[in-house]
């Protein structure tokens, strides 16, 4: 395994009850790159994403076999601290889910639960995270307003800022733009491009143009299997598999 791989899965299988939702998925995610997961609805791409921070643990009757490593450490090893795993692997959800608190408190929430009490330090983290999420200029005068008063796109960038404030290494994004309009989408896409300098981003999207625009690597999934994974340009221009080509050229999906 080369040193620039941050997350890798090996023969990963997942069942919901008796549904075999992920079938022998093996893939590698490279550090400081954007990896997109594409595929038709229900193909397992979101399920795979939620494996990386073990958020599937919250769902009843889920069974996982195989291996997922973060920096070469198996995250299913007994005794793994799920809490610190999730600190290292942040997540942005499909629908913006700001807490019903103020803008400031939303961003400060993560550092606070991880033990930061110093107000100056918190102020610094909040400002820096909001700047990183390209939201600072829009909200700096109303940090104490409710986060629910923001527009959908702003809420999503707030959720990104909230994730950044914890200082993750990897950011998982589960269709982060599907609830947003084109302008807000463009802002988030620009942001993803900036983020990859410091973070590794894995994004699930059902929008192929988006995958082509923002990602360096793309994995195509179909019916729970990872059909193919490679450089985005290669996947979109010279796919190895016929299934991939059919999907990309819009023959199904």
């Amino acid at each position: 395994m080369s040193s620039d791989v941050i997350i890798a899965t090996h023969d990963l299988n997942l069942w919901y009850n008796s549904t075999h939702a992920l079938q022998s998925v093996s893939m590698q995610v490279k550090k400081n790159n954007v990896t997109a997961l594409i595929g038709p609805s229900g193909c397992g791409k979101s399920t795979l994403l939620r494996c990386f921070n073990r958020l599937n643990d919250l769902i009843d009757h889920v069974r996982v076999t195989g291996e997922i490593t973060l920096d070469s450490e198996n995250i299913h090893r007994p005794g793994t601290d799920v809490v610190s795993l999730r600190k290292r692997v942040g997540m942005v959800f499909q629908k913006p889910n700001p807490f019903p608190k103020s803008i400031y408190e939303n961003v400060a929430y993560g550092p606070r639960v991880h033990g930061v009490r110093d107000t100056k330090e918190l102020d610094r983290i909040v400002e820096e995270s909001l700047r990183h999420a390209a939201l600072w200029d829009e909200v700096k005068d109303r940090l104490s307003d409710s986060a629910l008063s923001l527009s959908g796109g702003q809420q999503q960038r707030l959720c990104i800022a909230r994730t950044l404030a914890v200082g993750p290494e990897v950011i998982l994004m589960d269709e982060p733009c599907s609830a947003l309009d084109p302008i807000a989408t463009a802002k988030i896409e620009n942001l993803i491009d900036l983020l990859k300098k410091e973070y590794t981003v894995i994004i699930v999207t059902h929008n192929m143009q988006q995958a082509a625009r923002v990602s360096d690597y793309t994995g195509f999934m179909y019916l729970g299997k990872l059909i193919e994974c490679g450089k985005t340009s290669q996947i979109f221009e010279h796919p190895n598999e016929e299934l991939t080509e059919n999907y990309i050229t819009g023959r199904f999906g």
Partner: peptide, 10 residues
Amino acid sequence: LREGSLALGA
């Protein structure tokens, strides 16, 4: 909301 919080490592 719970997922959002847990995903931050709370």
